[in-house]
Simulated scan of single mutants.
Amino acid sequence: MKGPLFYAKILLFGEYGIIKDSKGLAIPFNAYRGALKTSVNLTGQAKKSNESLFRFYTYLSNLKTDLVSFNLEDFKKDLEKGMYFDSSIPQGYGVGSSGALVASIYDNYAFDKITILENLTRDKLLKLKEIFSVMESFFHGKSSGLDPLNSYLSLPILINSKENIEPAGIPSQKEGKGAVFLLDSEQVGETEPMVNIFMNKMKNEGFRKMISDEFALHTDACIDDFLSGNVTSLFSNVKKLSKVVLKNFKPMIPDAFHKVWANGLKSNDYYLKLCGSGGGGYILGFTEDFEKAKKSLQDYKLELVYRF
């Protein structure tokens, strides 16, 4: 057995904001991918994955929902034959490792599944997102369902609000100097503790005000600029967003990167923002001159995502 490939995702803009109903923009990231495979002799990571899938199978068996039902009999049989999720997507890095897994299980075992070939109305997209949210909650405690949706559709997705999502056309890449890149913190981040910190902070009126008056405002402006290809304005807004995140989301930024973050703002060589929930994994970088950013960040591993 060999399932279709599902890709990693990058939430370019909207981390945390989408929990509170502001805009978000997610794009597939084809450098990392995963697929369901079967092996008679399971060892190492494959064995671990198979055991984790058995736990996921139990979770899905006990789900009380009218949203979706699964062919649990086949799922169990395949697990007993040695099925595992073979993935190059790093876990705890904010690029959707559990999302790709959820998408592949839905694709393989859901009854009456919504396929990517049909006309994807807003209602169908919202239903898919809701199904994926319920499924992915097994991994994170609370999930928006966006990562699996992105992985399943393999399309850029624009989140206007919780009730309004649509596939987005993003400008095609150019061979310019500018770039979006990933900076490897070389630490694993865990989603659930970070989301809990955020939820606690949201109890504070000042923090809530900052989210709506600054964070959401700059995020929305960045998304509008990115989608319309307005690069000059984009960098101005990304800088503002980067400042707000450094000031208000310190627990989500690994300690070793507070200074690196501030250096980018000071030198204008690059601007950093969270990639996913933070706490480790990848940090997302934006630069008007990728060569300059590489020089400034020569002690770190960078990976190119998109060129301007």
Results as ranks from 00 to 15, higher is better:
G276L: 00
M1I: 14
T38F: 11
N268C: 12
G280A: 05
G141V: 03
F207E: 02
G3W: 05
M135G: 02
I223H: 01
E186V: 10
P251I: 03
D123V: 05
E118V: 08
F235C: 12
S133G: 15
C275W: 00
V195T: 07
G279W: 02
H140I: 06
L12W: 01
V188Y: 12
I18D: 01
E303R: 09
S212P: 05
V134S: 08
I19D: 01
M202K: 12
L128A: 04
V305M: 02
F6N: 00
R208T: 12
G96L: 00
P193R: 00
I197F: 04
K250P: 08
K124R: 15
M1R: 13
K23H: 07
N248P: 07
P90M: 04
A110C: 05
K76C: 05
L297W: 05
S161M: 07
N62T: 12
K162H: 14
L117H: 14
K266N: 14
A31I: 10
S22W: 04
V134L: 11
P251L: 02
K2M: 07
G264F: 02
S98Q: 00
S49Y: 10
T287M: 08
S185G: 10
Y300L: 02
D289A: 04
S233D: 14
E288F: 07
G96P: 03
M199L: 15
K20A: 06
I253M: 00
K203Y: 01
N50G: 10
T58E: 15
N200R: 13
K240N: 14
L25C: 08
G278E: 01
S22G: 13
I197S: 03
V102Y: 04
I27E: 00
K2P: 01
Y282R: 00
I197T: 11
K113G: 11
E130K: 15
S133A: 15
N196E: 13
V238T: 07
F70M: 02
L241C: 08
K129V: 08
D220Q: 14
F132I: 01
A256I: 09
L125V: 08
F85V: 01
E130I: 05
E175D: 11
P148G: 01
K113T: 12
T65G: 11
L265P: 06
E166M: 13
S242E: 02
N248S: 10
K76S: 11
